[in-house]
């Protein structure tokens, strides 16, 4: 594969474009590396520490200074703080309220609700609220 590198003036201008016949495993790994997102998160479940694949996370919630990670059927606790995870998990993880980050890829649909909010229905049919302050950012992540 030909690799072209060009220097740009600012961080905002940094873009990587990969042109390939198909998305191979190597290319997927390269994308992950470039996006700077980690692929596993250390979690605690029933006193046992383990690792959870990022792609299985539905949403993350902070309750009483503790951070809980929700997957399709389970809930785990993590030592990481919400703001740290917001920075680390990549562009598909969106802050949707003061105490919650949602994985956009796990949202089935959204609908408008009273109070200028959006209600997101997740792939497991759970519903979460996207506060009005974060709707603009949500659209930005989807390049709308």
């Amino acid at each position: 594969m030909n690799v072209i590198f060009e220097t740009v003036d600012s961080k905002e201008q940094e873009t990587a474009v990969i042109k390939a016949v198909e998305k191979t495993e190597n290319i997927a790994d390269a994308i992950k590396l470039l996006e700077g997102s980690r692929d596993r998160l250390q979690v605690i479940s029933e006193g046992q520490t383990g690792f959870l694949s990022i792609k299985n996370i539905y949403y993350i919630e902070s309750v009483d200074k503790r951070t809980f990670v929700y997957t399709k059927d389970n809930c785990y606790e993590t030592k990481s703080r919400l703001y740290e995870l917001e920075e680390d998990l990549g562009r598909f993880f969106l802050r949707c309220s003061k105490a919650m980050i949602v994985n956009i890829k796990k949202i089935k649909s959204v609908r408008s609700e009273m109070g200028s909010r959006l209600i997101a229905t997740m792939l497991n049919d759970e519903e979460i609220t996207i506060s009005r302050n974060y709707v603009k950012e949500f659209k930005g992540r989807l390049e709308l």
Binding site: K106, S109, V110, K139
Partner: peptide, 18 residues
């Protein structure tokens, strides 16, 4: 405006949804 936003978001979600 919010309803229109929801429609646009639902369309865009189709492309990235797991």
């Amino acid at each position: 405006i919010l309803k229109k936003d929801a429609q646009e978001i639902n369309e865009a979600l189709k492309d990235i949804r797991d």
